[in-house]
Design a protein around this nucleic acid. Sequence first.
DNA 1: TCGATTTGGTGACTCGTGTCACTAAGTGCT
DNA 2: AGCACTTAGTGACACGAGTCACCAAATCGA
Lengths: 321, 321
Amino acid sequence: MAGVTSADVARESGVSRTTVSYVLNDTEGTSISEATRRRVLETAARLGYAPSAAARALRSGRSDLVLCVLPDWPVGPVVETILDHLADALGERNLSVLVHHVRGERPLSHLWRAVTPRTVVGLTPFDPDEARGMRQAGIQVVSTGVDDPAAQDPQPRIGRIQVDRLVAGGPRRIGYATTDDRRVADFADRRLAGVRAACAEYGLAAPLVIPVPVDAGAGATAVAAWRAAGVDGVAAYNDEVAFAVLAGARIAGLAVPRDLAVIGVDDVPLAALASPPLTTVTQAIEREASYLAACVLAALDGEDAPAPPHGGPVLVERDSA
Amino acid sequence: MAGVTSADVARESGVSRTTVSYVLNDTEGTSISEATRRRVLETAARLGYAPSAAARALRSGRSDLVLCVLPDWPVGPVVETILDHLADALGERNLSVLVHHVRGERPLSHLWRAVTPRTVVGLTPFDPDEARGMRQAGIQVVSTGVDDPAAQDPQPRIGRIQVDRLVAGGPRRIGYATTDDRRVADFADRRLAGVRAACAEYGLAAPLVIPVPVDAGAGATAVAAWRAAGVDGVAAYNDEVAFAVLAGARIAGLAVPRDLAVIGVDDVPLAALASPPLTTVTQAIEREASYLAACVLAALDGEDAPAPPHGGPVLVERDSA
DNA sequence: TCGATTTGGTGACTCGTGTCACTAAGTGCT
DNA sequence: AGCACTTAGTGACACGAGTCACCAAATCGA
């Protein structure tokens, strides 16, 4: 019934299980006659033998899996792109990528114990205890984020770029459309910090921050509040929020960017199709993803992590700001 | 260094490994004194013991993992929602959901051999050989799609609903905006079949089909072609394509829905924020996801699959059609 | 011909769990 | 006391693959 084992292959070819193992693994330092070798290979193929990686993992402590841990917050097209690239890069090394979306507070340890992955990739920093545990278990841990304190956080840069663009187009009173999602509040705050700093440097008033849920009504109320305060340029936490602001502006009868300029973050596929096309800031995710893949491969080969790519977020110029 | 094993716990608590196993698994039909039980539990917790599921899987052939296989085509918010629900439902049963995004032609067998999941969930039908292989290995296989030939394909229903709505608003010459992505061509064709049938029943000309890549330029050319042919209502393969059509109409200076009505499929989060808000057809994915989760749980308990939910795709009325 | 080396291959152990069969002490009943 | 039965726990094996140490026969060198 169950899978065919190496013992089956051995019996069928009239040799010992050891011989089968040596042949199938091309073990060096052993001598197996060409005839036997071919016979084993043929039998294995005929029986459709595939090694049980459970046993393999048990024996050697490592598997061909890369576990990718996603944070609890909503992943968008950005994360998807990263995962795709990662899977491609690692696929060439015969590694399979498994993705786990963290939900609630289920302990992570259960998972990596269960999977015994070769490496674990985190898109958000790990709990230090957790990371130590994994390393102790011989698992490579790669994590993007604030792993390297020397590399400065790119998030504030994004906020600065947004303000640069807005100001270049005319606006002098800046609003910030933040998210109402607590799970990404940290990100939003770091971007907002950049916006704040930039405003200060331009000698402008501090940005008027309003949380904008992703729906048209919320966008409309926010836009009304901004107009009342004289805001003529809005930086949004991301493109989705920017869409809500655009929808709000439409309801309020404002022309974008003339009456109100709007700029997002991420450059999601639909951003170019917004009305008007959404100006936004993108984080060269392909480059970032390649770097992540390179880190994983390096960790695999026992090498040090390669130098992080230079070049941060870049502006995507369209019509909304 | 490596993981702490049950033998460590046994030695530390001064009992046999067997006892540890019994305690930790709450094995029925054994009697362990409350004192010993607590001591073992405490030691295990103190040492941070977590069973190696490699060994566990080897021993019992099954793990606590549910492998979710995603097709090669781009997953959108819809699939994400399904996965979230699935993870929630299965999490309550202490099952972890692992997602694998199929890339290229890497054999699937390698993966499920390696993970030894309890069940494999496919969002697209499996290759019959593959499915048989998994079942033989004692893995439950759950797959949405055309698994049950009795249940009729809901895709054509979607097309009909689109046409119903368009026609109700006035349009008499229908266009179909299909995708240029080969990987989802099958879906698009099944929806188109519904559109065709509905047009025929209304006594209308066959729909004018144009592939529309998701970008504004492509939308504009398509819209021009439709107008030239007198098309006044467009059903799109999905919301993203609909966005492209909307953008095209905007460029062509057409008013939606007066000059051209547009209707999408999926009700992605941004659909409500389109200009004008996008009328679309949604497939009650939460219900669908719950059903999928129920199937997995049923398969787990050895029960038959529950009856599929009734109620198909429903219209989401907004302004674009 | 004897010893040394190579060729071709095998037995036995290991990884960490789960579980069956079994023991040894204690308790209750007549 | 003698028997049955519960309580508390242990020893040994299996799962499937990888690998070290070993062995028998053949070949080689002098």
